[in-house]
Amino acid sequence: MQGNIRENTQNRASDQPRFGIDAPGLVLGFAIGGPLLLLVSLTGWFALVPPLMWTMRCTGLVLCAEAILMTLSSLHGKRRVVRGMIESLQLRGDEQVLDVGCGRGLLLLEAAQRLPHGNATGIDLWSTRDQSGNAAAATHHNAELTGVAGRVRIDTGDMRQLPYADASFDTVVSSLAIHNLPTETDREQAVREIARVLKPGGQVALLDFRCTALYAQTLREAGLVVQRSWPEFRMFPWVWIVRGRKAAA
C-alpha cells in the first residue's frame, strides 16, 4: 500500500512541467562557496585574525542567502511575477504571441494558456549556462504537460536576427533573456528586432533585472509608447518590466 502511494506521488510529480533554475552555475557557486567560507572561518588559525574571520563569515552568509533566494526566485517568485505580467496584457485569446529567449517555456506557456484561438511562438539558442536543462525538447515536453502543445511553436534562432517578417506578432514578451547578450549594441539590436516584428497596435512586455532603461529607450526610439515599472521584489535579484505599445497603422 505504501509502495503504491509513493509511486503515485512520484508519477504526479513527473507530470508537472519543470522550468529549471536561472543562472545555475552562479547558484551552484554560491551554494558551494558560502558554506565553504563559513567552514574555513571556523578553523583555529582564522580565530587569531578576527577581522579576517568575520569578513569570511559575513561573506559566506551572504553567498548562502543569495543561493537560497535565487533558487526560491526561480521556483516560485518568477512564476508569480510572470503570471501577473501575462494577465496584465489582457489578451483577447486570438493573438499571435512571440516569447524571445523562451527557455523552458514558463512565459511562453503562460501566454499559450490564454490563447484558445491563437498561437504562441518561442525562440531561443538553448544555453544551459543561463537556465538549467535548457533545450527545445524540454520546452516541447512542458507544453505537452500543460496541454497547449497544439498552439505552441518552438524555434531555434538568435534574437538579434529574428527569422520573422515585419509586423508578424500581436504581442512580444521576454523574461530574463536580453541581458545575456554580450554587449549593449547586441541588446539594442535585439530590442529593435522585437519592435520590427511587432504589428501596428501591438504590445510588448520585457522583464529583466538590468538593462531595462536601455530597453525602454530603444523602444521609444522605435516609435513605441513605453512605461517602465517600479522594481518587483518577488524575484531575486529584483526586476523591472518594460511595457510598450506600437502606434496603430
Rank of each mutant, 00 (worst) to 15 (best):
L106S: 01
L75E: 09
L52A: 15
M70W: 00
G133A: 10
A120M: 07
R196T: 12
D124A: 03
V27F: 01
S88D: 15
A177S: 09
V225L: 03
K199C: 10
M1K: 13
V225C: 02
L108C: 07
C58M: 11
S174K: 08
D22L: 03
G3S: 14
S127E: 14
L162F: 04
R210Q: 13
E87D: 15
L115V: 14
Q10Y: 00
E66D: 13
D15Q: 05
E7K: 04
A65Y: 05
G44Y: 07
S175V: 02
T156H: 06
T43V: 13
T185R: 13
I5F: 04
G201S: 09
G105E: 06
T55F: 11
G105T: 00
D170V: 15
G77Q: 05
E110M: 08
W238A: 12
P116S: 13
L89Y: 04
G201L: 05
I154W: 00
H140C: 07
L42V: 14
D99H: 02
L207I: 12
K78E: 14
E232Y: 07
Q2S: 12
L224E: 01
M85W: 07
R18M: 02
L106M: 10
T139W: 01
T139G: 14
R153I: 10
Q131V: 01
Y215F: 15
R160L: 10
A136F: 00
M85P: 03
D22P: 01
P116R: 02
G93H: 09
R79A: 13
A13S: 04
G25Y: 08
H117G: 04
T146C: 15
D155W: 05
T212D: 08
N4T: 13
C102Q: 01
R245L: 06
V197N: 00
I68D: 01
V226K: 08
T43L: 13
R114C: 13
V97M: 04
C64D: 11
L91R: 11
L42K: 14
F169C: 03
L61D: 06
A136N: 08
R6E: 02
P231A: 14
D155R: 10
M70Y: 00
C211A: 15
T71K: 01
V82S: 13
T59H: 04
S229A: 11
Q16M: 09
G93M: 10
D130M: 09
T43I: 11
G77K: 04
G105C: 10
H179E: 09
V191G: 11
L36D: 07
F46V: 12
L206A: 06
V100W: 03
M159Q: 07
L61M: 06
E87R: 12
S168A: 12
R210I: 10
A247L: 10
G25T: 12
M56K: 08
W54M: 08
L181F: 07
A23V: 06
P35I: 01
A190L: 06
Q227M: 13
L72F: 07
H179M: 13
R104C: 11
P24E: 03
G84F: 05
S74G: 06
D22Q: 07
